[in-house]
Amino acid sequence: MAKSAQDQRNQNQSDLDPFEIEFLPQFEQGRGPREAFVNEHGVVIGDHEYESDNSPLEQWTAETDPEVMAGDEWVHPFKDVGFQSAENREYFEKGIVPQSGIFTHPDKDVSYEPGQASSKKNEDEAEA
């Protein structure tokens, strides 16, 4: 009897890194390396050793610009903790596209430009 795709995925789960998920084939193409790599800053990405001598995190000061750690060179294409979120697992393992919409925060309106009054604040003032 042939194994189902789910049985094969369950068997392969043991081969996965703790931060990996079982990507659908269309999401595996062109992602980048599965093995750990050294980024342009000399930091190994994907080895789960987060204390690297070259990492800006180890040399952080009040003058460090956080942008220095932004970008794809800081994220492993297969072994990122972010893949463990329910939304990312649904998308990358099942092909369920996330619902679009405005990002919301329980007490912050992030849908307006800094320096402008928020629409929530305007609504609250109109009701008063």
Score class of each variant (00 low, 15 high):
Glu35Cys: 02
Glu35Tyr: 01
Ala36Thr: 05
Ala36Leu: 06
Phe37Ile: 02
Phe37Asp: 02
Asn39His: 09
Glu40Asp: 14
Glu40Thr: 13
His41Phe: 13
His41Pro: 00
Gly42Gln: 03
Val43Thr: 11
Ile45Trp: 06
Ile45Glu: 11
Gly46Met: 09
His48Tyr: 13
His48Glu: 14
Tyr50Phe: 15
Tyr50Glu: 12
Glu51Trp: 11
Glu51Lys: 14
Glu51His: 11
Glu51Ala: 13
Ser52Asn: 15
Ser52Val: 08
Asp53Val: 08
Asp53Lys: 12
Asp53Pro: 11
Asp53His: 06
Pro56Val: 07
Pro56Met: 10
Leu57Glu: 13
Glu58Gln: 15
Gln59Gly: 04
Gln59Lys: 15
Thr61Ser: 14
Thr61Asn: 07
Ala62Cys: 02
Glu63Trp: 03
Glu63Cys: 01
Thr64Gly: 09
Asp65Gln: 07
Asp65Phe: 07
Pro66Gln: 10
Pro66Gly: 08
Glu67Ala: 14
Val68Asn: 01
Val68Gly: 00
Met69Cys: 14
Met69Asn: 04
Met69Gln: 10
Met69Phe: 08
Ala70His: 13
Gly71Phe: 04
Glu73Phe: 07
Glu73Trp: 03
Trp74Glu: 07
Val75Ile: 15
Val75Phe: 02
His76Glu: 10
Phe78Asp: 00
Lys79Trp: 04
Lys79Gly: 05
Asp80Trp: 14
Asp80Cys: 12
Asp80Tyr: 13
Asp80Lys: 02
Gly82Ser: 08
Gly82Ile: 05
Gly82Pro: 01
Gly82Trp: 03
Phe83Cys: 05
Phe83Val: 05
Ser85Val: 07
Ser85Cys: 12
Ala86Cys: 02
Ala86Arg: 09
Asn88Ile: 03
Arg89His: 06
Glu90Arg: 13
Glu90Pro: 00
